[in-house]
Design a protein around this nucleic acid. Structure first.
Lengths: 145, 145
DNA sequence: TGTTGACTTAAAGTCCACTTTAAGATGTAA
DNA sequence: TTACATCTTAAAGTGGACTTTAAGTCAACA
């Protein structure tokens, strides 16, 4: 009794929905060589769960700030084999460094946003001298610049 | 003995440098009504430290994800007086909500990036079966999706 | 079998946030 | 006074990452 397991395949629309992109974006990524599709006899693309994982991984990298160009470079090196691992590591570490810098910056931006929200809320609650400027408020609670 | 203190003023180039933008960007922001400049008799713009603080504040808001359009709305409400404080608070809180959502997303992206860097490093150090796929590695160390 | 929806391609269009260009006026240093 | 930097404007251009259009093929269902 033999069990037949066939890997599920997805047409471009279903695939796009699965990874949270649009079908045109999938075609665009393919043109940019970020991913390869398989074709049915009739010329239509199909994708597998491996492709789903691949695109999801790409989107994680993209989400850390890598541009399409960065991703292309990464994919190109990947295709060249293990001797490009040092290159890939360098690229990923640079990505992480850039990310961490921006991360610290946005935390500061968030701090100021929170301060401003609190300032408005205090102002509405009458807890602040109605004329105290925001800059003064920031000094008073210990946030500057 | 009277001390004469004159507020320092900055020409557009100096001002732009002070806030980390280009002079054309300052003019662009002015066109978009995000800031107002003062003019010398000869028609040239000048700016004060108050303007410096204002632009820096705008850049903090922008850094949390507010678009130029959002900022315009904020500035417009601000000009309309205290009765628009609820509107402003709503806008800032929405900004914060959007920010926090993206913040959590990028933390996840960073996690995957770190995992991949570690995976490459282990691979280079021979600490991982040379054929173990990244997906398996993620499962093994407890990160999925 | 007809019609609706999903697919195919190449090329053009869009959005955002600037940036660059062009042509000219004015300020500053040698 | 001669350079040269810096300023002025309006308008056009740019880059990145898609998105939309147009014209056509193919599939799935009533």
């Amino acid at each position: 009794m033999q069990e037949m397991r066939t890997e599920p395949t997805y047409a471009i629309g279903e695939f796009a929905a699965k990874v949270g992109l649009s079908a045109p974006t999938i075609r665009y990524y393919e043109r940019e060589d970020l991913l390869k599709s398989h074709r049915e006899a009739n010329g239509r693309r199909y994708f597998t769960d491996t492709d789903v994982n691949w695109v999801r991984f790409l989107l994680h990298l993209k989400g850390t700030g890598m541009s399409i160009q960065d991703l292309k470079q990464y994919v190109e090196w990947r295709a060249q084999g293990d001797e490009t691992i040092p290159n890939r590591l360098t690229l990923l570490k640079e990505t992480r460094n850039d990310f961490m810098e921006k991360y610290r910056e946005v935390q500061h931006h968030l701090q100021i946003l929170n301060d401003k929200i609190n300032w408005y809320q205090n102002k509405e609650a009458g807890k602040t001298t109605s004329t105290e400027p925001f800059a003064e408020y920031l000094k008073r609670i210990g946030h500057s610049e």
